[in-house]
Amino acid sequence: MWAKIKRASVENELLYLFLHSPVAMVATLIAVLCIAGALLAPWLAPSNPYDLASFDLMDSMVPPAWADNGDERFALGTDDQGRDLLSAILYGTRLSLMVGVFSVAFAAVLGVSIGLMAGYIGGRFDTIMMRIADIQLSLPAILTALLIDGVARGILPQQRHDELMLIVLTVAIGLSLWVNFARTARASTFVERNKEYVQAAEIMGMHPLRIMLVQILPNIMGPILVILTVDLAVAILLEATLSYLGVGVPPNQPSLGTLIRIGTEYLFSGDWWIVLFPSATLITLIISVNVLGDFLRDALNPRLR
């Protein structure tokens, strides 16, 4: 099988570059491990960190198992409520990834559709959409997300808001990221639309929707894939930041950002583990996604070769 991959890789540029980039392969491995850990959290985690009844305040602030006063039940120690940190991290990663993936998917679908149409149809629609994009671009993602979250708090009653918080968060992050996709898709569509294969399709009388989806879309997937990866890292980062600021995920479902916020309060008294382990997990996850994004960008950018 390896031989088969080797042979295919000589023909497939991307696969070849990937197999010759140890950094990209390691990053993929780490990302896959993180995703697997997140998906399998309910089975891997020693306890359920969302179930308040399952932990005991008597177990609060236990240091990691190998440290003095450590408890072997809690490999990475516990937090201020006696929650097992390892379980909390696994579930937190799951939450971070979920919000990240869904918000980027939302942003991608919205942004690519708008960009594709703006680039293909042009004219007024293009001018208006790009004006909106410009304005939104000057409002940084975190500000947009905060604003949307604030508005949601104003509209929804407190209780409903806590229930819908994850959705609000996903939409807020998604809405703050669509511009990147729209601009990239538009720019690439613009290039493609002037190519002769599109003109050929138009002359034949092909339906514009089919031209956009069947002819153009596959040709602009490269740059979109890059944005997809880069923005996944941004989305995870945004979720963590919002949760750290206390306006993100609901407090009874801690994500990595929430754990870091809780941990900061105890940092000064020397209880370092609550900050350290979630931070390390978060950074590892984001770095691996960013490394992949960088690899894709270089590999798919013909100008750099």
Binding site: E196, Y197, I203, G205, H207, Q215, P218, N219
Partner: peptide, 26 residues
């Protein structure tokens, strides 16, 4: 000219740049 107009079939075109006149993904 409608998309179904018969001339769309009867008139065909060959373009200048063979690198851009065929869709690379098909």
């Amino acid at each position: 000219r409608s998309r179904q107009h018969p001339s769309r079939r009867r008139i065909q075109m060959v373009f200048q740049d063979p690198y851009s006149s065929l869709n690379n993904r098909r």
